[in-house]
Nucleic acid binder design. Sequence first.
DNA 1: CCACGAGA
DNA 2: TCTCGTGGG
Length: 334
Amino acid sequence: MGVAFRDILTEFRDTVGWEALAGVAAVDAHNALYQFLSIIRQPDGTPLMDQEGRTTSHLSGILFRTANFLEKGIRPVWVFDGTPPDFKQETIEVRRAIRDRAGERWQDALERGDIAEAYKQARSSSRIDENVIGTSQELLSLLGIPCVQAPSEGEAQAAHMVEKGDAGYVVSQDYDTLLFGAPVLVRNLAVSGKRKVRGRTISVYPERILLSDVLKGLALTRSDLVRVALLVGTDFNSGIKGVGAKTALRMVQRGEFEQTMRERLPDTEWEAIMEFFLAPPATDSYSLHWNAPDREGIIRMLCDRFDFSQERIQKALDSMGAKAGQKTLDSWFS
DNA sequence: CCACGAGA
DNA sequence: TCTCGTGGG
């Protein structure tokens, strides 16, 4: 999921403090929701659920993440996916198959009592359905956070909003938004600063990537960067087996892109994908307004409907209210 | 993921 | 005061 650019971007990732991130952040909703759904689980893989068995992991994630963002002076706008381009269909089907298989393996692992495997498979089985989208938007609306509906890919819309200056940066774990032209990408925007990797916990800091640094540092145009992506594989095409980011970069720098595509990926109609990355559908019809959280509405939704603890929710709401009060509601929630 | 309490 | 483990729904 997402273009595998990590190996060529290491030197362009600078860690930044939270204070440098105050301002408007365009959140890649699909990426954030997937993160919440896959990670907010019990050790055996069971997600948070209400008494009726409806998943609530994403609601927990949204609430506390939003509280933290507002506390740190970050005003999020969530950008949701629209209709994917036709050439994404194959990827979508492959992912569905992987997800379904993971669901089966999760059950198998549970029956065997293999908890670690169960957790791993459960994560991969995460699915962002209409219900997740709907309840997420409902909660964000109650929190006073604006949502933008992308005509096509959310990452493209988020990139567009940063290019326009309506947001300072895109928040996503994936690098794809750079391909869509996002001038600034921020990753690892999680509060805890810790992550479990194979049992060990390591510290992670927010990291910022400037597209201009990447292009300058690698001596590439944005089209070239997309060419590298096409060789390693994107959401819209599978790349060349055995070719990673470093090899692909070398190929592009040597001007071997078209020949390599012709020889190794003859069935990929890359011109259309390239055009999509360079000039993706995006809309200007959105309005960004942040409102004070609707405390009672949030409690009705989370506590009355989804069985959240009233005490916990009150505390989270208090932390948001405190910050809002400091700057006066009008200037902050404009 | 995040919050919170226990224990150092 | 900080780290770590656990529960959250």
